[in-house]
């Protein structure tokens, strides 16, 4: 089967297509990579729960033929935690936007990282609240424009991967919507990882962000993702050659930053505790 045919075979109903997403939106590309990653891992679709909150990214589970959960804004992780604790054998995957995961759901995000519950969070970072009308989000770069930042944002942005690392997620990686092949591989790795995994995908929203910030079209935004991504490997190599080497403004690192298989997974810890208490009774 072609890549497209594999992807389409996971759609809930072809009638729902074309998607609601704007022309050139990266969400469809990301969903394709995710579906092919699941297919490669050969996980039965009934064993997967695909959950989301609100936002353009939150629409993703609507199209997919898994057990799906479309929750309230920012709370995808809270609901997913409940699902995973109740049925630890299920694979729980989440799609969240930047605002959804690090503003409204910021609290859930840091505590899920800390606990290391076996969930896979795909964080689509397009630097803006798209669906609600282009308000600036915690990842809107300084001095960039949004409907609520008509003179440029003055809020220093979050680096989502740093945030996940700082709160001790056990798998942390970043890629872009242009780099489809590495994206598919990283998502598969993250799903296979036993613990909380965060995959940040640098992506673009032309409609509410690009237009305001001088981009001509979605293609130009995707080109920038291609050009600004610096792999961790090449960064480390350059840094070893020249200690003063730094990323240029706008550039970002891609690759797997953390892959820690030693920290205990939370639902296991809970099951052990529960078994021990039963024995002691």
């Amino acid at each position: 089967m072609s890549d497209q045919a594999v992807t389409v075979s996971y759609l809930r109903s072809k009638k729902k297509y074309p998607s609601v997403w704007c022309p050139g939106c990266s969400l469809g590309t990301i969903m394709g990579a995710l579906l092919r990653a699941v297919d490669k891992l050969e996980i039965p679709r009934d064993d997967i729960v695909f959950a989301s909150g609100i936002g353009c990214t939150g629409r993703m589970p609507v199209y997919t033929d898994f057990n799906t959960f479309h929750g309230t804004h920012g709370r995808a992780l809270a609901f997913a935690t409940g699902i995973k604790m109740a049925k630890p054998r299920l694979k729980v995957i989440l799609a969240m936007g930047d605002g959804d995961s690090t503003a409204i759901g910021g609290n859930h995000f840091i505590h899920t990282c800390r606990r290391n519950l076996d969930l896979t969070a795909i964080v689509v970072n397009n630097n803006i609240y798209g669906m609600t009308g282009g308000q600036f989000s915690p990842t809107t770069p300084l001095n960039h424009f949004a409907s609520t930042a008509p003179h440029g944002s003055i809020d220093p942005p979050f680096d989502i991967c740093n945030l996940a690392q700082g709160t001790e997620a056990t798998y942390v990686a970043r890629t872009t919507s242009y780099h489809v092949r590495p994206m598919q591989k990283i998502i598969a790795d993250a799903i296979a990882h036993k613990g909380f995994s965060v995959v940040e995908i640098m992506s673009h929203c032309y409609t509410t962000y690009g237009r305001r910030n001088g981009f001509k079209d979605p293609v130009e935004m995707m080109k920038q993702e291609k050009e600004n991504a610096v792999t961790l490997k090449s960064y480390e190599k350059k840094k070893a050659e020249d200690a003063s080497y730094e990323l240029e403004p706008g550039q970002f690192l891609t690759g797997v930053f953390v892959n820690d298989k030693n920290r205990p997974e939370y639902s296991r810890v809970y099951a052990d505790l529960s078994a021990r208490l039963r024995e002691e009774q």
């Binding site: 072609s2 890549d3 045919a5 297509y17 022309p23 050139g24 469809g28 394709g32 995707m222």
Partner: peptide
């Protein structure tokens, strides 16, 4: 095929 956001291309 992999980049198309709308799953509209096959090779």
């Amino acid at each position: 095929e992999r980049l198309c956001p709308d799953l509209a291309i096959t090779v």
